[in-house]
Simulated assay, not measured.
Amino acid sequence: MSEQGDSEREFDIKWADEAVHKEPSARARMLAERWKHDPPGPVPFRPEPDGRRHGRRLRGRGSGRIRGERSPWVSVVIVFGFMATVILLLGYADFRG
């Protein structure tokens, strides 16, 4: 490392990353202290859905669609339609030229 003053070395990120001991975050310290007295219970790998998933309804529930939601097949049709249009336009341009 080049000659640096103490104030510059203090904020050097490489120097900080190479530290042997890293202090845990405030949240980690808070949870460790809380769990000493009251350990958390078991948590399932995938919790039961509560009826909403990222702003969408679960499949099979409800009859209508939520505003802005569309089938994944619509995206597939749009992509293939765009590709077919480009291919046809390129073929037409080659045919004319």
Rank of each mutant, 00 (worst) to 15 (best):
V20F: 09
V20T: 09
V20L: 13
V20W: 07
K22F: 02
K22E: 00
E23C: 07
E23W: 09
E23V: 15
E23L: 13
P24A: 11
S25K: 10
S25N: 05
A26H: 02
A26I: 08
A26V: 09
R27F: 06
A28H: 07
A28F: 00
A28S: 08
M30I: 01
L31I: 13
A32I: 13
E33Q: 11
E33L: 15
R34V: 04
R34I: 08
R34Y: 04
R34S: 00
W35H: 12
W35S: 00
W35P: 01
K36I: 06
K36N: 01
K36R: 14
H37T: 15
D38W: 08
D38E: 08
P39E: 03
P39V: 01
P39R: 02
P40Y: 02
P40N: 12
P40S: 14
G41V: 00
G41N: 04
P42D: 08
V43D: 09
P47A: 14
E48D: 06
E48L: 14
D50R: 15
G51L: 08
G51P: 01
R52N: 00
R52S: 03
R52K: 15
R52H: 04
R52T: 05
R53V: 15
R53H: 10
H54W: 14
H54V: 03
G55A: 07
G55I: 13
G55K: 13
R57Y: 02
R57T: 03
R57A: 06
R57G: 04
L58V: 13
L58Y: 01
R59N: 12
R59K: 12
G60P: 07
G60E: 07
G62N: 03
S63Q: 12
R65W: 05
R65N: 06
R65S: 06
I66V: 10
I66L: 15
I66F: 12
R67Y: 13
R67W: 15
R67D: 15
G68P: 03
G68L: 10
G68W: 10
E69R: 14
E69D: 07
R70C: 05
S71P: 03
P72C: 03
W73H: 04
V74R: 04
S75M: 14
V76F: 12
V76E: 15
I78T: 08
V79L: 11
V79K: 04
F80N: 05
G81N: 02
G81I: 00
G81W: 01
G81E: 04
F82M: 09
F82T: 07
F82Q: 04
M83G: 02
A84I: 02
A84K: 01
T85H: 02
V86C: 10
V86T: 06
L88R: 00
L88A: 10
L89D: 05
